[in-house]
Design a protein around this nucleic acid. Sequence first.
DNA 1: TCTTTCTTTTTGACACTTCAAAATAACGTG
DNA 2: CACGTTATTTTGAAGTGTCAAAAAGAAAGA
Lengths: 220, 220
Amino acid sequence: MPSSTVEDYIKRLYTEQQQAPGELVPMGRLADAMAVVPGTVTTMIKALADSGLVEYEPRAGVRLTAGGERLALHVLRRHRLVELFLVRTLGLDWSEVHDEAEELEHAISEKVLDRIDALLGHPTVDPHGSPIPRANGEVAREETLTLAASHAGRSYRIARVADSESQFLQYAERHGLVPGAQIDVENTDEAAEAVSVRIAGRGQCTLGMSAARRIFLASV
Amino acid sequence: MPSSTVEDYIKRLYTEQQQAPGELVPMGRLADAMAVVPGTVTTMIKALADSGLVEYEPRAGVRLTAGGERLALHVLRRHRLVELFLVRTLGLDWSEVHDEAEELEHAISEKVLDRIDALLGHPTVDPHGSPIPRANGEVAREETLTLAASHAGRSYRIARVADSESQFLQYAERHGLVPGAQIDVENTDEAAEAVSVRIAGRGQCTLGMSAARRIFLASV
DNA sequence: TCTTTCTTTTTGACACTTCAAAATAACGTG
DNA sequence: CACGTTATTTTGAAGTGTCAAAAAGAAAGA
């Protein structure tokens, strides 16, 4: 049985890998993502390589093996189902479920997870719009177009909001920047590092590029 | 923050202490309950004594301090609310929730626990009939009369069934030996180590003494 | 009381996850 | 190409929770 620490590394590796598919994830990046010093990651990755979950290329980086990816999707499934459960059944806010789920995902059995899945009607996306992997390991591909890379004058639908800091999610919610919302990109100003959008049925707002990179779009 | 291992030791110590109130719990008993070797318990108890959760009398035994008891009740509250939640909301069987709750109780935040408590309508007993401690540390006293010590010819109500092995709970459920059931004790046979009871609205059944010790009674 | 038996404690060791700091490798620039 | 910067790995150590086996204490019977 993988420890919860192992599950966390594998999950992070998966999400880091998503940002640049096909490439090796550098150790430093994983260290940042896991909030540990780089030396710790080296140690851990060597252990994970020994257990066949990752392929490690010294001084180059690391990537998941097929087995590692299977585990990652398993963990992600637990994480996202738990998040949705916390929002729908227990009424928590989408901005606060990430940290809760981070703990619960390691403590929940398959049996309980299946019950939750059934209770929620076999949902396909979590409260942030991220796809929930199926028990067999299938996942919908995630949108990769971010608001930061969108085109002024066009219309989009918000597909997903990266579930990171609670503060950002609260801000997004207040402005109606939630999955499903229709938006018009009014203006993207490279120099000012800002994007202005009009949210259907709500107002207008301007985001900095680093915030805009956390909002993922689909064509209308 | 106490680790989940610490929480487990404290919880076990509380329940062991309940069996013989006022007495010191011998190290060997705690070792059995925790399924570790005695040396491990000695080490752990010394650490717990240092952090003020227990009072340790070398070669005699150990008991909870007021602070330790507070923590125990906190953990027990989580455990029992989670059990009830699993039965009522997710539809698991009372015989299988113990092990699930054992994991979840360490992963659940106060916030989520409060939501569960509210969702269940601030319940006072878990699926096995054990009282759920209140958030402020109050608990109802548990019944101490067991079926093993009951009197032939009298009638009782089942107050609580010790939540131990799944098998025993399944057996109890099949025979209607669940909290709230009315029973008549027909015959207690010391020599044969057996007790026969008639369960209101169900049949009659005979239990061995060690099973009878897991069923707690209240007067009708 | 002496001896045997049972319980408890001690000791040394190990697995896991982490850090700090030193050593090493790779990279880009002049 | 040498040099300095940056990323990565190594080394030594710590904390937590565990075990096995040896040592010490307590209890109980002869």
